[in-house]
Simulated scan of single mutants.
Amino acid sequence: MLVVRPAMPADFDSLMELAVLSGRGFTSLPEDEQTLRARLDLSQASFHSEVAAPEAWYTLMLEDLAEGDVVGVAGVKAGVGLKRPHFSFRVVTLAQSSPTLDKRFDHRALVLVNECAGWSEVGSLFLKPERRKGGAGRLLAQSRYMLIGLEPQRFAEMVLAELRGWFDVDGSCPFWDHVASKFFRLEFDEADMMSASTDGQFILDLAPRHPIYAELLPQAASETIGRVHREGEAARAMLESEGFRFSGLIDIFDAGPTVAARRDDIKTVREGRRLRVRLGEDAYGEEALICSGAVARFRAVRAPVLLDGESAIIGRDAAAALGVKDGEMVRVKA
């Protein structure tokens, strides 16, 4: 059985393995020991309510209980842009007209903004390639919304997700090569690492202050504005099924799109029900997403459940994976 559980400091080796596998452009999983260890420490403190709610960052691990192997990771940041700006480019239309010539032109342009300060963020979704089937990715993705639904007041009213931008098959990033690198004068990997492991002051210092006209960019770069990485299409589809939509914002490094939704409109948050557990000897009923009833002991599985009024009848294996006993509360999304 697959279970989603809080990350712990002891998960460092597994998290580093996933970071290595994630490849270029996956900013939230840098191959940096200090950064990853700090993230695990912060996650543990977040689940134990040892940090202020807006500063929490919950990291979730997907574990195969039968093999004792961590096969995926995801995360929820309670608030972005609080201690450091959360910069994006907004894609805007600038209209210019000439009454003399009786002509009007609409120009697409990129404007540096910091619009999402205080929003929550779901991200860091990554699975080992061989485990991207059988619903594992969906379980991991939806577990983030189950966590939010347990105690919505811990999170902001708006939730965003940033999708990795386009990279060519040779590993190059057209938007970085033709646009962003002209301002930062760094290699992509160096800038990516600095973005994940520093306070981001270099972005504040060097990011462009004036609109960038898309028509002046090489076609290779302009075509990637808001384009999702080939390995991110499934993630985008899952986000859209939950109600996320393109926000008009893109990443300043790789031009990947930012999607957003109101917290209470996210499908899994909206449709989850708080029910009392009743144990059955065998697993029966329709398969559903189930999570334990408290953030501090969060665990999530997909398992058969029979809904009976305000009760959820689940099998003993599912109860053991969730760490819940008969009579305790769980949250269920059918």
Rank of each mutant, 00 (worst) to 15 (best):
P30F: 07
Q44L: 12
L36W: 15
Q44K: 12
A38N: 10
L21C: 04
S14H: 13
D41E: 14
A38C: 07
G25D: 14
F47I: 05
L42K: 15
V51I: 15
L18P: 00
S43Q: 10
A38I: 01
R37D: 05
G23L: 05
T35V: 12
G25K: 09
E50K: 15
Q34F: 07
E31N: 04
T35N: 02
S28R: 04
T27P: 00
S43P: 01
G23Y: 01
S22D: 05
L36V: 09
R39H: 09
Q34D: 14
D13A: 12
S22Q: 07
V51T: 15
H48T: 03
G23C: 10
F47H: 04
E31S: 06
V51P: 04
S14I: 00
D32M: 04
V51M: 02
V51S: 01
S43K: 10
L29V: 11
D13P: 00
D13Q: 14
A19P: 03
E17H: 06
S43L: 08
T35A: 13
L21G: 07
D41F: 11
G23Q: 11
S49G: 03
L40H: 10
V20F: 12
R24A: 15
E31K: 08
A19V: 02
S43E: 07
E17L: 13
Q34C: 03
R39L: 14
M16W: 14
E33C: 04
T27R: 02
S14K: 07
M16A: 06
S49L: 11
L42G: 10
G23R: 05
H48F: 02
S28A: 12
S43R: 09
E33P: 01
H48K: 12
R37T: 11
A19H: 06
L21M: 08
E17S: 12
L15M: 10
T35E: 02
L40Q: 03
S43V: 09
R24C: 02
S22Y: 04
R24L: 09
E31I: 11
E31V: 15
F26T: 12
L42Y: 05
S22H: 05
H48D: 14
G23E: 12
G23A: 14
S14D: 15
A52L: 15
G25N: 09
S46C: 05
S22P: 01
M16P: 00
H48E: 13
R37I: 09
Q44F: 05
M16N: 07
E31A: 05
